[in-house]
Nucleic acid binder design. Structure first.
Lengths: 215, 215
DNA sequence: AACCCTTGTTTCCAATTGGAAATTTTTATT
DNA sequence: AATAAAAATTTCCAATTGGAAACAAGGGTT
């Protein structure tokens, strides 16, 4: 029975409910159909495996594999994990858009002013740049730091990597663990280890804009 | 009810069956148990989001998020996808092991406008930022691209790594191998693999200023 | 202390997943 | 073609997921 996959149907049903909310908060974060099934099948066939063999390798039922490959179910995380283990694929590889294999063509991604992928949070208004390329060594954001008072600065953030901060306009106050807060004006920059607690507030009357690059 | 997660129990049962086969065929491409829940919580908190806010961003129920973070369910693929989209995470990042947070000593380096270390070349006028810190993952420059005519644009440059280019003022023409030259205006950015030949000239009447970050 | 409000957890249940087996389709062989 | 064997899909159903709502656990306020 060639019905529409459940989770796609469900997707639509919810669409209604959450449309407004989602649009408000994050105008542009919908889940594309992404053909997991197609990817999986490609990988299996590239190893010349039958469903039965893949089944043995992954510990998943033949039927389950078939359904996944035909996008009839949305496998659970644990199933995806088994799949990856059994077929010897990197998880990331599974999700990375196969897009044009980069091969001979160089990787390049242009982002025009204001055309990044918006990602608002209560505190900041991030705009992800260069979202076409995946597996980048750096992740660049252009971020609007909303004008706000001192005493409500956000919690420390801590994570892997290093960060470069360049103030494009306005002025901000950079809080980092182990140091006194420091005010940065347009043109100033900071480089720090993200393992230190850090957070940023705007000190200008209006919003400040910064470029943030994480490695 | 603090029972053992279903999908973990089941994991063990099947273990027996597939052990031998798996060892034969693919002895070593193990994606460890990875605590998805913990990761997700980290990421959510790093953005100072509440479950409610994350719920709005992802379109998932608060309860669902809670269960995921507490490893009480194995979310379906479509749910994981929504999660990643909503929270603005690269899928791969979700699965990559978070090397234990470096006991932070606190590396931080502030560079005031114009106080970087000058490094002039015939073509550009680089100003190295954050020169106090060594062993950085990224090397940031603020570079003035001298106004110049088209036909004397510099040779390709090729080297290791990836580069982010952000135009601070003026406009420039970015030449990269495999692509047509493209004009970038203030606020535009480009990300590319440095293995591609690349070079930059200014197209504005006066000098252009760009931020260049190499990883 | 009683109350309200926010954040996170748990319960309940309808909807979906995943396995075993049945069924259909494809491929190979006469 | 006809048949057998292999491979893939579908069906059926028990087990699990995911949403709504109830619940619990703080934080402030009055």
């Amino acid at each position: 029975m060639p019905e529409e996959p459940h989770f796609l149907i469900e997707e639509k049903q919810r669409e209604e409910k959450i449309r407004v909310t989602r649009a408000e908060v994050n105008a542009e974060s919908y889940v594309e159909p992404l053909e997991l099934g197609k990817r999986v099948r490609e990988i299996r066939l590239s190893q010349s495996l039958t469903l039965e063999e893949a089944s043995k390798l992954t510990g998943l039922a033949r039927s389950t594999l078939s359904k996944i490959e035909n996008d009839q179910i949305s496998p659970t995380f644990s199933v995806v994990t088994k799949l990856a283990k059994g077929l010897g694929i990197d998880m990331p590889q599974l999700f990375t858009r196969p897009k044009e294999a980069v091969a001979a063509t160089g990787r390049r991604d242009i982002t025009r002013l204001g055309e990044g992928k918006p990602h608002p949070t209560p505190t900041y208004e991030h705009e992800l740049l260069s979202t076409q390329l995946t597996n980048k060594k750096m992740i660049p954001y252009r971020t609007v730091v909303r004008a706000r008072s001192f005493d409500e600065y956000p919690e420390w953030v801590r994570h892997e990597g290093e960060e470069l901060l360049y103030v494009l306009s306005g002025s901000v106050l950079l809080y980092t663990e182990f140091y006194e807060p420091i005010e940065l004006m347009a043109g100033d920059s900071a480089y720090y280890d993200c393992a230190m607690g850090h957070s940023l507030v705007s000190t200008s009357a209006d919003d400040a804009v910064v470029l943030w690059v994480t490695a």
